[in-house]
């Protein structure tokens, strides 16, 4: 059982000036193997912090987090990460970026080469193996990042606004790609996004977080990801339930922002 189980996660940042920020408060959830979770929330509500804790880059100041029964203490190959801006190694070629994880394990060269070919194929970058990454477009870089993460065969894929910097068209294609990979590999995926539509479309489950202190505000279970597997995403977006949920979440986030502004003004 490789479920992700968190129990009353708390994260308090001590600032150099003595004050502290309560970035996460009592976050408790369970993510089953093979589930697709998207996380939404206003800026500064602790989404990245949560992801960093799952990835093992941060230690929570309170609560516990377990993956597959063991406590997460440090980053590991069982959790792959895709960042907002590729975070590619620009001194390496596309192929060397993709096979980075395998090289770190000193995997068999031939096998590695084959796998890289496979994955470049899946993300639609056939023949780009020898291209330096700095010559790629933003969308292509994001696909390299995806391939680099997936080639390691992680149990859990963590994505922090992976599509934020892409144009609408590329974004749609990438969304389909994520769905395709989710279906074909059956991986657990946790994806952070700022776009409500994207969250609805990609989220089998959806968390809306609230700020100050960051906490889970509302959870949804949605059918749209399943539908998007074979359906046309644009049609799904016009579905009545989709529109309804979207409006509901937008209002929710609007109110939160409003509240923050009010607090700031009052202060």
């Amino acid at each position: 059982m490789s479920d992700l189980i968190t129990d009353k996660l708390n994260m308090v940042f001590e600032l150099p000036d003595g004050s502290s920020v309560h970035a996460l408060k009592d976050v408790t959830f369970t993510l089953k193997k093979g589930e697709l979770l998207s996380v939404l929330g206003p800026s500064g509500c602790g989404k990245t912090t949560l992801l960093n804790i799952v990835a093992g880059f941060l230690h929570p100041t309170g609560g516990s987090i377990k993956l597959g029964g063991s406590i997460i203490e440090k980053p590991g190959v069982d959790r792959g990460m895709v960042f907002q801006q590729g975070a590619l190694f620009e001194w390496l070629t596309v192929a060397d970026n993709v096979n980075f994880g395998l090289r770190m394990k000193n995997a068999d060269k031939e096998e590695t080469k084959q796998k890289v070919e496979e994955w470049l194929d899946i993300v639609g970058l056939q023949g780009f193996g020898d291209t330096p990454t700095y010559q790629l477009s933003g969308g292509m870089q994001q696909r390299v990042a995806l391939a680099r993460c997936l080639i390691n065969n992680p149990d859990l894929i963590l994505m922090d606004e992976p599509l934020g910097a892409l144009d609408a068209l590329t974004r749609e294609k990438m969304q389909s790609l994520v769905l395709k990979i989710w279906k074909e590999t059956g991986k657990t995926i946790m994806i952070i996004t700022h776009s409500v539509e994207e969250a609805l479309l990609l989220g089998e489950r959806l968390f809306v977080m609230a700020p100050r202190p960051g906490r889970l505000h509302k959870q949804y279970r949605l059918p749209f990801a399943e539908m998007g597997l074979d359906g046309d995403p644009r049609e799904i977006k016009n579905e009545e339930k989709f529109v309804q949920t979207r409006e509901e979440i937008l209002t929710m986030i609007w109110n939160m922002e409003e509240e923050i502004m009010g607090k700031v003004e009052a202060a």
Partner: peptide, 10 residues
């Protein structure tokens, strides 16, 4: 982020 990426790539 590059260092984080390298860490999670093992």
């Amino acid at each position: 982020s590059k260092i984080h990426a390298a860490h999670s790539l093992g």
